[in-house]
Design a protein around this nucleic acid. Structure first.
Lengths: 334, 334
DNA sequence: TTGAAAGCGATACCAC
DNA sequence: GTGGTATCGCTTTCAA
């Protein structure tokens, strides 16, 4: 199984008896070449199995046709869904998507961003993990736009696309209150991220709007990746003054809660954040959003910035929506 | 917010009063440069915010440090899970992952593969969609290895990583038979893909091993993306001779079946293919597999082939495992 | 409409 | 240890 040589533009030119430049034109500005010449060139290209090299092509321009996406963990369905939206828009615009994971660490983020920048991505999309993205400021000034997804970047001028977290949590809480709940818990893990800070805020505002001044004793803001969601819920329910309703700050906590609630005769009401496949079967009410659209909008923002790196930065807010499926609509059982 | 120029290796050389070649060495073969010179170069590089350009670097070598992954739909958790495994191994080996979706069409596959090959990916990983991948034969001979994931490529010499589909379906069927089931249905959509062909085969073999020669009347092999899984199940259950157990050939069909079964007092037994997040909560027995590992193995195969494009192709089989959770272990209710 | 020549940013080969 | 020089594959002036 021998390895042949790859044909270059020059090879094609030679075979077609034209100059390299003409071949180049055939593959980029066909209309500037006479039909006869073009045909001859294409025939030669075909015979040699010639394929233009995008990399060499972009070497001139400075930036490539690739866009980087720095993500915590592709395994997380939320991010892979965002990636789907990104990829669709980018592909439609002749760009390809490079994905790189940070393992959810700040060092990982910087390392990975570095790799992507070395590839001269035309734009850098990222879900920030670290506390500080100022290390990207130089690149931004060098013309590589940065778009922050799901959480705003810190100490860096960057466009961002985030969810309507606060309002989402607020509505969920108010919805429970409207059904008579007064003892509403909020559980999440990890808690030290922008999205949770916002959601907690929304929860607290709703609680406060009900006349309660001090924070509730039912907040469980964990920050231990190893923590067992089910145990947290079990603890809450064992309280003397147990909550009659629970808001789960994310997917994992919601599913963890379900494991406990499933076996109860009179479970507390439950509303999750982030929709999931079997939520309708399980009758779980959730604060939902369109993550594909989030990716799409981020990609469009990126394309816009690639065209024009100057101009004011923008923040796009993706709406959230409370979906009623039963688990969050019954009154307190006590 | 002015756009500055990006510093090149030459700029650094000039500032450090050394030749470009020396700068190059500092960034690739540091040990060949005297510590003093290296330090001076690094200082200059830092001042100019110099970052080596991977693209230009790879221009010489012929192939890049990128690996392409052609996928039907990143939205499908199975594929995004595979992508996770891929990315981890590739990142550990200094390669970056480019993902591109085909929208599950053969034309899409070819178009997307073309884009990736034009980027000179060092290897092409793909979940084949079309009926024929012979169009890649030329590239393979040109030194770009192709690794087929989840289904073997057709008319193309390529390594592949697939699941133990047949045995998985066989075990599931036998397990149901061991619990007294004789009327076992198999439902899937789409049916015209390798994985389903294999699983159906395993199902039939198990049925045959029970002494039944002719095919069962409970096979529902659909090929209509718009078909409603729940309706298929409802139809089955409405039969005079309704099945007492159902095997769902994939995730979507399994969840569709659940929607119907959930409301029945004496539902038929159910075993799904592909695990999912809430399967344990719902008590759904499934034929499970490790998709992250699948990606990992595919990536390792790719790296191996990049090093040595010759040699025999291999097929790696990822084991499947029947997980008992209740839905598939009860006897027939009739 | 077509072509010659000079890069793009880095590396490799070969001297010193 | 260090430096010239050609080169990777293509595109962009600028002429013809």
């Amino acid at each position: 199984m021998s390895i042949r040589q790859r044909a270059t533009l020059d090879d094609v030119a030679r075979l077609a008896h034209v100059s390299p430049k003409t071949v180049s034109r055939v593959f980029s500005q066909r209309h500037l070449v006479s039909p006869a010449t073009a045909e001859a060139v294409l025939a030669a290209a075909k015979r040699l199995k010639f394929r233009p090299n995008t990399v060499a092509r972009n070497l001139r321009g400075g930036a490539s046709n690739t866009v980087g996406f720095v993500i915590g963990e592709l395994l997380n369905p939320f991010y892979s869904t965002v990636a789907t939206g990104l990829e669709r828009v980018l592909a439609d615009n002749g760009k390809t998507l490079i994905v790189a994971s940070t393992d959810d660490t700040a060092e990982g983020e910087e390392r990975v961003a570095d790799t992507l920048l070395a590839q001269r991505v035309a734009a850098l999309l990222m879900v920030p993990v670290g506390e500080d993205q100022s290390y990207l400021e130089g690149e931004r000034q060098l013309g590589c736009p940065v778009i922050s997804i799901d959480r705003p970047a810190r100490n860096l001028v960057a466009d961002s696309v985030v969810l309507e977290n606060r309002t989402g949590a607020f509505s969920a809480t108010r919805s429970l209150m409207a059904r008579g709940h007064r003892k509403i818990a909020y559980i999440c893990n990890p808690a030290a991220v922008y999205t949770q800070a916002e959601r907690i805020q929304g929860y607290r505002e709703a609680i406060a709007s009900g006349g309660r001044a001090e924070p509730t004793p039912w907040e469980r803001l964990l920050d231990d990746p190893a923590a067992n969601p089910a145990a947290v819920v079990a603890d809450l329910l064992a309280m003397d003054d147990a909550p009659t309703a629970i808001i789960a700050g994310n997917n994992r906590m919601c599913i963890g809660a379900l494991q406990v609630l499933d076996s109860l005769e009179h479970p507390p009401a439950l509303i999750g954040f982030d929709d999931f496949d079997t939520a309708d079967i399980l009758g779980v009410s959730v604060v939902s959003h369109d993550a594909v659209d989030m990716g799409r909008q981020a990609a469009e923002l990126a394309l816009e910035r690639i065209m024009d790196p100057t101009g004011f930065t923008r923040q796009i807010i993706i709406p959230t929506k409370l979906i009623h499926r039963g688990s969050g609509e019954h009154p307190p059982y006590a």
